[in-house]
Design a protein around this nucleic acid. Sequence first.
DNA 1: GTATCAGGTAGGATCGATTCCTAACTGTCC
DNA 2: GGACAGTTAGGAATCGATCCTACCTGATAC
Lengths: 163, 163
Amino acid sequence: MTVTQEELRRRFHRHGLRMTPQRVAIYTALVGTSSHPTAEWLLTAVRRSRPRTSANTVYYTLGALRDAGLVQEVNYGHGSARFDGNMDPHHHVICRGCRRIFDVQDRTLDRLTVKGGLPRQFIVTGHRVEVYGYCAECREARAGRRGARRGPALLYIQRQRRR
Amino acid sequence: MTVTQEELRRRFHRHGLRMTPQRVAIYTALVGTSSHPTAEWLLTAVRRSRPRTSANTVYYTLGALRDAGLVQEVNYGHGSARFDGNMDPHHHVICRGCRRIFDVQDRTLDRLTVKGGLPRQFIVTGHRVEVYGYCAECREARAGRRGARRGPALLYIQRQRRR
DNA sequence: GTATCAGGTAGGATCGATTCCTAACTGTCC
DNA sequence: GGACAGTTAGGAATCGATCCTACCTGATAC
């Protein structure tokens, strides 16, 4: 997705955010990818055009964009926070192998009914459906070591060794 | 929930886990609460009976229990990982104010159909629904500063009449 | 156009959760 | 009872994220 300079100005202005080269770079990089990048990925991306950008700026900016509702933070544990420039209603499919996050646009998931008891007087502001599994690339790697674990596979993610 | 010594032995043994006092303490503490505690909370709990238990042991044990499928790790970003001794299919309600996590048991949420395109050849192993909002205690604190941000209406859940 | 200044940036220090490393310890099985 | 792989403790190291501070600069008013 691309955003015109004018639309960019409007979005930033609406939330009282200054339009600096760093912010424009960070925001457009984020809106321009569907890869749900980490702050570090964005830092690297931004440094291609502005090598002296600091990590601090990326965190500060992402925080500001998040608070303004221009961007959302999606965390599934396991290391760094991920960010998503797509603010349209959508849910996520997460590969347990490579940890990639894919988008799913599905109207029916946007409207769910909770029958089971919510906590008393709980006000619902939103919800999110996460689908877990294995992408085409990872299913093969997994096919080898089959049967080692059976599981209510749902709801748990194997931690990846940090390298 | 409580677990007999015998059942405990069976569960540990099934996964080739040794039954040490530390592990028993950690596991029973986790199964005995519905508060989705952090590793640190568990460390404090365990140290009441075994003061010399190290943080490392808690992490190591939680990792082992998680990998064995006896426990699940539930992360919603914001600091420490949370753990859940409840392995029955259930979903979570998260208060954006105090960050508490409540359980929701709802059969209909366990069976969702994703119509929107999943990535090609993606194998689904599970899913989870997270409901966000504000608990009774936090809604008041929030009532003051109303209207500052409107949420993306997209993700909303219809609340069904409580039986 | 210039001044003004709150908001933004850089860079280093710090924090906090988690993992790594290593040596000592101990359930479990034979 | 002995052997040994799995565990534990404790400290060091790592890494993402935040804090602190001084400097800088868009945006607005003049």
